[in-house]
């Protein structure tokens, strides 16, 4: 009995210590010369963020920077601790894709007090950072509405009602998608008959929200879901209900491209996560190497409408750049 316990004890000890040592051999111990970029990322769970991370990593490789990435695990407390630890490691620049943009204020301040420039890759920020690289969300929403209006031309159904599945209000910048969509709807003479925050932000949440929209406004002709998986959920709800409603998504996630291929989703507004990641390091390079001033600058990144006509070409280009299939 006792021996068994000793064995278990030693095994556990080994299991715990070994990963630490294994990773030690991976490097990170090199004497510090050159420039080190620390990257704190929301999560690696979604393709969008994997592509964004690839963009940051590719840029660091291209510019010859040392690269440290810490995953926030979708936890704002961990995010703050991680960024603090990057400050402690005296990195030269910090790139953040924050899970909770409202919660980076104090820690970004202490980074900048320590003379470390900060750029945000996507999502948003509070308080001053050097630069925020983010998709032109408002324009993306406008594109979605324009597409719905275009598709409705010449159709016998002349209802002018549309619906919106909005993103969580704390995603301040992503809210612009819904706002752009609604402004465009008004401009084109459409009425936003139902507008619901998708909760939880998932495919199931999208499905659920779409059902609510269909009961609240049975005669909507088109809906815009301001995030990828949610839009796929919504499109499936429309399909299950056997209705003819145009569903447009946002992101350009693999699930969405698949849904376009399957004819379930009408279109999506694609963001360019790889490019956002790459640009956030390029801006950092300008700050660090050329001494260029960036103070609380917002750098919009282009979005693109993907329809059954052009999504394949877009996906192929994305694949070439990222080295990973877009879907």
């Amino acid at each position: 009995m006792k021996k068994k316990f000793v064995v278990i004890f030693v095994a556990l000890l080994l299991l715990f210590v070994v990963p630490a040592f294994l990773s030690a051999s991976k490097g990170g111990e090199q004497p510090k010369e050159g420039i080190t970029i620390g990257f704190s990322l929301w999560t690696m769970e979604f393709t969008f963020f994997q592509n964004l991370e690839k963009g940051v990593r590719d840029a660091c490789e291209e510019f010859g920077y040392e690269y440290i990435m810490i995953d926030q695990n979708s936890d704002p407390q961990k995010m703050v601790q991680d960024i603090n630890s990057l400050i402690g490691q005296k990195v030269d620049g910090i790139v953040i894709t924050p899970v909770d943009p409202g919660a980076i204020g104090p820690v970004v301040q202490s980074a900048r007090d320590a003379g470390i420039p900060v750029t945000c890759a996507d999502i948003g920020k509070t308080g001053p950072v050097n630069a925020l690289l983010i998709s032109n969300n408002y324009h993306g929403g406008e594109l979605a509405m324009e597409y719905i209006a275009k598709m409705m031309k010449g159709k016998s159904n002349n209802s002018k009602k549309v619906g919106v599945g909005r993103v969580q209000p704390q995603w301040t910048y992503a809210r612009g998608r819904g706002e752009g969509f609604m402004a465009k709807a008004k401009e084109l003479g459409y009425e936003v008959a139902s507008e619901i925050v998708v909760n939880p932000p998932s495919a199931e949440g999208g499905y659920d929200t779409m059902q609510q929209i269909m009961s609240a406004a049975p005669d909507v002709v088109g809906v815009f879901f301001a995030s990828g998986r949610e839009a796929v959920g919504a499109a499936n709800a429309v399909k299950a209900a056997g209705k003819d409603i145009i569903v447009v998504g946002y992101n350009g996630d693999p699930e969405e491209l698949q849904a376009i291929e399957d004819g379930v989703l009408a279109a999506t507004v694609a963001q360019q996560p790889w490019f956002i990641g790459y640009e956030s390091v390029r801006v950092m390079k300008e700050i660090l190497e050329k001494g260029k001033e960036y103070e609380d600058a917002e750098v919009p990144v282009k979005v693109e409408l993907l329809t059954p006509d052009n999504y394949k070409k877009w996906a192929a280009e994305a694949e070439k750049r990222r080295g990973a299939p877009a879907y």
């Binding site: 990963p19 695990n73 490691q89």
Partner: peptide, 22 residues
């Protein structure tokens, strides 16, 4: 410490689980 050694955050959870059981 694990974060500084670039140990993935899921492995960090594994480590905490192991320490607990230990």
């Amino acid at each position: 410490g694990l974060g500084m050694k670039q140990v993935g955050s899921y492995w960090q959870l594994v480590a905490i689980g192991l320490v607990l059981i230990f």
